[in-house]
Amino acid sequence: MTDKRKAEEAGLGPWFDAGRAEAPAPSGDWLARMEAMALEEQRAPAVAVMPERESRGVRLRDLLRVLGGWPAVAGLAAACAAGVWFGAVSPATFSDWTSVATVSDSYTTFEPASGFDVAMLGY
């Protein structure tokens, strides 16, 4: 016992001595069960206990891996953004792009030979 603690105890010293001597002891049966539990836990496969925040991170990483990593996800995001933009702006903006094909144009405007003709020519 340290001198400091002894000085603190002063008149209570004999009482604490008695208390330390009367320390509650566990039964042998309980200790045997605790030993069995320790060995059982030691054999069990380690279970990673992770905080909630970290486990969320794991799920995000898994998703990224499935999609092909960050570059693939960046490409996917760019494509999505372009799609949204195309959908949001007026169709008139694209009139030049789509003027080649109008509602009145028939299929043969672009494909003079029909599928049947092509088949008959033996291609």
Partner: peptide, 22 residues
């Protein structure tokens, strides 16, 4: 104990079990 040494499981139980119980 973490490395799988059974004697460590027994020694720690004998050392810490009575303290925790007490």
């Amino acid at each position: 104990y973490a490395a799988g040494e059974p004697a460590a499981a027994r020694a720690l139980t004998q050392r810490l079990g009575p303290k925790a119980f007490g």
